[in-house]
Design a protein around this nucleic acid. Structure first.
Length: 503
RNA sequence: GUCCCGUUCGUCUAGUCAGGUCAGGACACCGGGUUUUCAUCCCGGCAACAGGGGUUCGAAUCCCCUACGGGACGCCA
């Protein structure tokens, strides 16, 4: 055990790279650098169902794009590997076994149906929903027998029945939570994989993480982690819980209300340095209060105690202002040109547009107007244009279903988009042409444009999805959106004809 | 509902740890100047210590209560 500072960023590869991940990474990195330590990147892919290699790749790429480097990780190795939890299951199983043997954990055979039922009843009785201890009283013989019958089972953490858990948060001081508030968490699932709680404790210990700097959302499960450290006979790291990035309405940052994918900002033409700088001023100011600073400057002067705890609202307007300053003050016109070309202003991107535009061109001057929607952040159009001849509410319905379907797309190209919409038309009993009308408007701002699927493919998933959400927003601002009830009904209907949603 | 965390201009925040310019900067907004327009740039303005009790000569700063906001309560992380 060294006394070196070691921090970690532990993203779960279950979707688009989130700005919140970058935010946490930034502070972990700054803290590690400031103290001459190292930052580890660990992939938390213990959710077999939702984790994908594509997402992992996208996250690593997005963080790199933002200019962050980690000292150890699945891509660059390190002496504490492997850095992917799916490759460390034996480690977790051994510890789970140990906890079982020590009597700190117990097997549970309850079905998820029963669990749901119990939860429902507890909610109805206004109790805190938690495991009722059903399997706690199983005898060793019963356990043996049920295991032999191949009944699926999980491992649950035994939690003290009374007293309270105290731990210190570096930013908030001492926090205490009654043990009665803590659920008998599942620490190993029936597929043999650990849940976050176990994996995170085992890995943080084995990887010699000295400081756990993570989001505020984890405060309430910290007692489980503290308990695990105790049961396993390990010294816990110090904890610091950072505030969460918020939507303008103060709720936790979510893609419904704000673009959250790092790729969105990349595709929309933001500079990574400006993004990083902006995130660095969320809940934090440098000691001298300067507001334009580089990653290195942040790292050199970083003091974690300066983090302020009120949840900062992610304000795209201010981000844009900052980005503008970078463009004007940090780059020469020549550099701007080069970056513009690398973005979407060069032959690579134009080459993809030409075949689509060509049949519609008479002169060169036709090119830019017709391709404009591929280069701007989002088109503007009046509501009437979006609704067309259809009922606005019906349009909202279709957009929503499409949003969910698009969420599931694992590949993003002309053909896969085409089949998604073919399927949509079929299920909705509409002609493709009719179905597509509002999508032309929300993607391009016009009823007539380049072929839609090619356009969406070039736009990329993030810009496309955001345009759909913006259209939905426009609709609801004008009283034609889905009501809460309507949304719920739609969701149910959706599940029946399209299957489960994944986000 | 229960528990936990939080609360300075509309927004990001300084000041809080070592009480004593009733509060500084930035975005946005408004006004003025430079500019053939716009933008940039420059100048100016608007605007906040959530409320109530204490402690103190004195509180944004320390303590308590209330309110409000957020988070957590999954075989998700």
């Amino acid at each position: 055990m060294t006394d070196q500072v070691r921090t970690r960023i532990a993203p779960s590869p279950t979707g688009a790279p989130h700005v919140g991940t970058a935010y946490m990474a930034l502070f972990n990195l700054a803290f590690a650098r400031k103290h001459g330590g190292r930052m580890v990147l660990r992939i938390e892919d213990t959710d077999q169902l939702r984790s994908t290699p594509e997402s992992e790749e996208a996250i690593l790429q997005a963080l790199s794009w933002m200019g962050m480097k980690w000292d150890e990780g699945p891509d660059c190795g390190g002496e504490f590997g492997p850095y992917r939890q799916s490759e460390r299951t034996a480690l977790y199983q051994a510890e789970a076994q140990r906890l079982l043997e020590q009597g700190n954990a117990y097997p549970c055979f309850c079905s998820s149906e029963r669990l749901d039922q119990v939860r429902k009843e507890q909610m109805a009785n206004k109790e805190t929903p938690r495991y009722d201890g059903h399997c706690l009283s199983l005898t060793p013989e019963e356990i043996e027998e049920r295991k032999n019958q191949n009944e699926p089972w999980v491992v649950r953490l035994k939690v003290p029945a009374e007293g309270e858990c105290r731990f210190t948060d570096e930013l908030r001081g001492e926090i205490s939570i009654e043990w009665t508030q803590i659920d008998h968490q599942v620490i190993q699932k029936s597929d043999g994989f650990p849940t976050y709680h176990l994996a995170n404790v085992v890995d943080d210990h084995l990887m010699e993480i000295s400081h756990v700097i993570r989001g505020e959302e984890w405060i309430s499960s910290t007692p489980k982690h503290v308990l695990l450290y105790e049961y396993l006979g390990w010294t816990p790291p110090s904890f610091a819980h950072l505030p969460l990035l918020r939507n303008p309405d103060k709720s936790k940052l979510s893609k419904r209300k704000n673009p959250t994918s790092i790729n969105y900002y990349q595709d929309a033409g933001f500079l990574p340095e400006a993004m990083l700088n902006y995130l660095g001023m969320m809940g934090y100011t440098l000691p001298d209060q300067r507001e334009i600073f580089s990653l290195d400057e942040l790292c050199e002067t970083f003091e974690i105690k300066r983090v302020s705890l009120g949840g900062p609202i992610f304000d795209v307007e201010k981000l844009k202002w900052l980005n503008g300053r970078y463009l004007r003050e940090k780059l020469s016109p020549e550099e701007v040109l080069q970056k513009l070309i690398d973005w979407k202003g060069g032959p690579d991107f134009f080459r993809k547009i030409i075949p689509l535009a060509l049949p519609r061109l008479e002169t060169f001057s036709d090119f830019f107007p017709i391709s404009q929607f591929l280069l701007n952040e989002s088109p503007v159009y009046p509501l009437e244009e979006l609704a067309g001849k259809q009922e606005p509410v019906e349009v909202a319905r279709i957009l929503k279903v499409a949003e969910w379907e698009l969420e599931k797309a694992s590949t993003w190209d002309r053909d896969s988009l085409s089949s998604i919409f073919q399927n949509l038309a079929e299920k909705e009993g509409k002609k493709l042409k009719e179905l597509l009308a509002p999508f032309f408007v929300c993607m391009t701002g016009s009823k007539v444009s380049l072929p839609l699927f090619d356009g969406m493919a070039l736009l990329g998933a993030d810009l496309t999805r955001t345009r759909i959400r913006k259209a939905l927003q426009l609709l609801s601002e004008n009283g034609a959106g889905l009501s809460k009830k309507g949304l719920k009904a739609l969701e149910k209907e959706y599940r029946q004809s399209y299957g489960n949603r994944i986000d």
